[in-house]
Amino acid sequence: MIVTFTINGEERSATVAGWESLLTVLRDNLGLAGSKNACEQGECGSCSVIVDGANLCSCLVMVGDCEGTTITTVEGIAHGSVLHPIQQAILDEGGVQCGFCTPGFVITAAHLFAANPNPDEEAMREAFSGNICRCTGYGALLRAFDRLAGDGT
């Protein structure tokens, strides 16, 4: 089947099997490899994308169900070559190590701060509880998000 959706502001189509995951189609059909394939069972958040306003694990989204949706991936967060304030804060605080979880954190942060510009620490910890980071121990990420919450960005 052919699925058509809007990804990062651009209309895209792909010929797919309906049961394929959105993640697979993003990575293998559309050349958007920024969303990561770490666990493929919704337990790590590395493949997080925003679909019609919801932050979802794209590995668990069946692509057949995406017709007509609007999708934001990590590739759509920066403004050209200028990092989004979320990305800049993570970079400044040292929140990137291996970077495999990073796209998922960027997406979850974008989703969180759009809905709630000033979350408290516990709310932030819970909001990011579906994003596993194996390298940083989350400290630098939390400091970046604290800074963003403080800025009201």
């Binding site: 997080s48 979802l56 979850t108 819970e126 579906g130």
Partner: peptide, 9 residues
């Protein structure tokens, strides 16, 4: 249940 991402779906 799962994570915020899981609960949204």
């Amino acid at each position: 249940i799962g994570s915020p991402q899981i609960r949204a779906a």
